[in-house]
Design a protein around this nucleic acid. Structure first.
Lengths: 336, 336
DNA sequence: ACATGATATACATACGTGTTGATATGGGAA
DNA sequence: TTCCCATATCAACACGTATGTATATCATGT
């Protein structure tokens, strides 16, 4: 085991026979430094394998080069793609990403603030407004995904509409264009302990479009709050057997839609002949299930790029437009 | 907009009319403090909403309470489950997790070291040994997933065998038990720019078991290095049409297995009658594809728990066993 | 000749915290 | 009394870095 003391700026200075200040100037490249000394410092840095301590720099106010991404559900394919893209783009800007899910506590908020992240991205249907406000008051650069409705967002907070709301409306319209009138909405299958998602924008989009298109619509057409696939299937079957008329199903995500398809099959009905099914996310199950699922694709890469870019803008303090909206893309397959 | 200066220990001291040192003692609870003053400090902390700056504490050597998880492919369901579990367990220990994928550069290694993470977890088939060594030399607590072979790992580095190697062997044995003799291996569909995965333990498991079971085996039975589903399908069809005998297919993950099933269907062969197919990961596509895929389930929650626990052990310096291995679990469905 | 600007260096301070060592008080035991 | 220990406090330093301020040298232009 080699000697293990952290190599510091003082070591470099000693090795290069210059003052610490010179070393600092070379590293930050913001002052005149004699050519000869500069070279000696560079050699010393390489030789000693020195790297400025990021923690100390952060304390001095240079930023932590870290971004935190606050989400709720991180365990689905659609989300992991976004994370992956963000990770990539963030790194191009020199940032590392911390990820966390379902941390809706004051304790957590305080921790985040005390860690001096350079920026925060929130994509959560359950993260309370009150906590978002604390981040805003702490003046931390912030970008929000409009997975749900926010109120009174200042101009210096980035907002990204990833198209979920309009996408959900598109889904309904498409089912209508296929002659469907009696549409069921299947919410996501939640893991225990997660809140209800009644302010989810996909659901809002669904409801708004149903009303705007003057389709008949009651609460019975929404299946939500289920914790297992079996429960969802049972609910669907029960409602249809109780006389609810259904010729179309809109799954909040592809998983929900697939579960709905199993339920339909179990009732010896055919997809899409008897009931059309449409999903959301264009995840891999939508391509491999049978029949293949018509679904809505999001511009995940573009969205991720926009989020990181916006954050960078805010961090740099440049006065640019911090609102962006994206459209979803309908992928036609066999289930409609 | 409220006044925005960071509230610091000095503010608390002033508010409570005590010295800064007293505040520190109250927070760290490591010295005698007068009961009255203690209460005043506690009130002040609450009133001012003070929280010790994590960055400054880190600089003073108290640890950053951050862990970094280095991976290669983070965009699949199996992995996102592990991340999700880790996030949960880590938070219970007071840690936040940074996530990053495919950062195989010296620059990145230096960055990680300079950020003073309390621990590192590596699950990558491509992260070079040389960099791992740097982490070890820097004395950063480290846990490795045996996704590939490592050499000369010191005793104070945690190692977790998640069962991929033995699981792969189980898959082969199971196909053999079903009377299959001519088995094809389908590697993962890689995104451009990723390295070949010839030291992947699943592949090793496959090869070793094929040889041990004395099945005929040539390189032609391995389909790897493809960048798209179409390419994989084409390769399978080509080889079979060229006369390669195939009655079983082992997909490195469920996605590969599903693609293989499409190829088989396109040749008007039947799964499982003509060719048995087995996957790996028990991801959701394995339940929704048709026929439903036999696959191998990993103990993701237990593995994640073990990783965080080990890291905690190393950080605390307690002398415990830092080796753990898990078994996979065969899930029988329709494809075999 | 002088003023000016570019080049070049170093000291001292600050970021917000944890901890050492010194000091003070009071009570009980010798 | 004197000694010891528990209680209680705080000034000063250290972690590793960035930078404002001060100072010095030198070439250039007037």
């Amino acid at each position: 085991m080699t000697n293990n003391k952290r190599v510091t700026r003082a070591d470099v200075a000693k090795y290069a026979n210059v003052s610490e200040t010179i070393v600092s100037y070379v590293i930050n490249n913001n002052r005149y430094v004699d050519k000869d000394k500069r070279e000696r410092v560079e050699v010393a840095i390489r030789e000693l394998n020195y790297r400025p301590n990021n923690v100390a720099r952060t304390l001095k106010g240079k930023g932590s080069n870290q971004i935190i991404f606050i989400a709720d559900q991180i365990t689905n394919e659609y989300f992991s793609r976004i994370v992956s893209h963000m990770d990539k783009f963030a790194y191009n800007h020199g940032y590392l990403i911390s990820l966390c899910a379902n941390r809706n506590s004051q304790e957590f908020v305080s921790q985040v603030i005390s860690r001096q992240y350079d920026g925060i991205i929130i994509s959560s249907t359950s993260f309370p407004d009150e906590y978002v406000e604390q981040f805003i008051n702490a003046n931390i650069p912030l970008v929000l995904f409009m997975n749900r409705r926010y109120h009174n967002i200042p101009k210096n907070v980035g907002i990204i509409d990833s198209g979920l709301y309009s996408g959900a409306r598109e889904c309904v319209k498409y089912l209508i264009s296929k002659g469907r009138r009696h549409i069921l909405y299947i919410d996501r299958i939640s893991s225990k302990g997660t809140k209800s998602t009644m302010d989810d924008v996909r659901l809002s989009g669904f409801v708004d479009q149903m009303i705007e298109s003057k389709l008949e619509f009651t609460e019975e057409q929404i299946i939500a709050g289920c914790y297992s696939e079996e429960q969802v299937e049972a609910e669907i079957i029960k409602r249809i057997q109780n006389g609810l008329k259904v010729d179309g199903i809109f799954g909040r995500n592809d998983m929900s839609a697939c579960v709905a398809m199993s339920a339909v099959k179990k009732m010896n009905l055919k997809v899409p002949e008897d009931i059309s099914v449409i999903g959301f996310d264009n995840s891999s199950i939508s391509r491999f299930c049978s029949p293949k699922l018509t679904t809505m694709e999001m511009q995940q890469e573009e969205i991720s790029h926009a989020a990181i870019d916006m954050l960078q803008m805010i961090i740099e303090g440049s006065e640019s437009d911090l609102r962006a909206s994206f459209k979803t893309n309908l992928i036609l397959r066999e289930s409609t």
